[in-house]
Amino acid sequence: MSVTYDVTRSSQAARIAAGLGAVILLLLIAAPWWAGRAELRLIGEICLFLSLASLWNLMAGYAGLVSVGQQAYVGFGGYMLFALTIFGGLHPLAAIALAGVLGALVSVPVAALIFRLRGAYFAIGTWVMAEVFRLSFAQVSALGGGSGTSLPTDIVRSLAEGRAAREALAYWLALAASVLVVASVYLFLRSRRGLALTAIRDNELAAASLGIDIWRTKFVVYVVTSALTAMVGALIFLQKLRISPDAAFSVNDWTAFVIFIVVIGGIGTIEGPIIGTLLFFALRETLADLGTTYLLVLGSVAIVVMLKAPKGVWGLIRSRFDLELFPLGFRVRRTDQKGA
């Protein structure tokens, strides 16, 4: 979609990557026919984490909004799926879309409050918000209070006939979400507002003097990210079919992992979250038996990366194979390829 941008060797590399990406995307679309149940579930999960990571990266890596409270929107989206289908009688797909809209709406007053906090205090403020969400949903007895609830079978059935078809649909939704998120992040960064964002990241003072409304730009990023995160959250719990406050608003699952993915992969790049997600799942699948040790390793790796290679794995790759490989055109091809 952007190879016209730069016609050099690099765009050829981008074309190859794009071709590969298209093939992989087709393979992934066809996954329900070739993959087993467990693999399908795993790939779906990878897609959802990639979406969360790309969104967090947009906020922290580009807009400088370091949030440790995105679980607020994951959980909110999940609960909206349950509430809208159970009480609103909505079709799950409509509920997912509406969860995004509601996520955007609820993020507006939240942003108005926590944008008063600067830098690191903003981060903890987002965490407080997530706690408020968690405690509030734990008070709703109709949704099972503190112990949570399951998605009623008739709603699950309304999705598609038969378990295999339902699982395939949930998988395609997850795949679509990751493609949608990565593509939107990419398109957003190429838009005027995205350019403004990059300018702010590079130099807030200079950006302000160029007439960029910093507050407004960050606000838009926050609201858009929240909406998409809520939709991803709804998809996550459509896969799980069960929700509880502790699972929905888990700081470890929806924020710690996501932060590690982005930091290790390379913060502030589109490719970083993709590489980070693949590395994360590779590590998880090999070290899962180690339990807490796995998290110790992950935390240590993230710290070492932050100190020694703050641009992450992608940054290392980029510095090694410098120059011609990385115009924006190439980057989106990589994105499509792995994101698919």
Binding site: A60, G64, V66, V68, G119, A120, A123, N252, A256, I259, F260, V263, I267, T292, T293, L295, L296, L298, G299, S300, A302, I303, M306, L307, P310
Partner: peptide, 26 residues
């Protein structure tokens, strides 16, 4: 980690938090 960029101290202490928590769990 200290400098103009707020990200490194935040992320490093966040990683530290996960390490301490899981070491205690272990």
């Amino acid at each position: 980690t200290l400098g103009d960029d707020i990200l490194p101290p935040l992320l490093v202490t966040f990683g530290l938090s996960v390490i301490v928590q899981n070491a205690l769990l272990e």
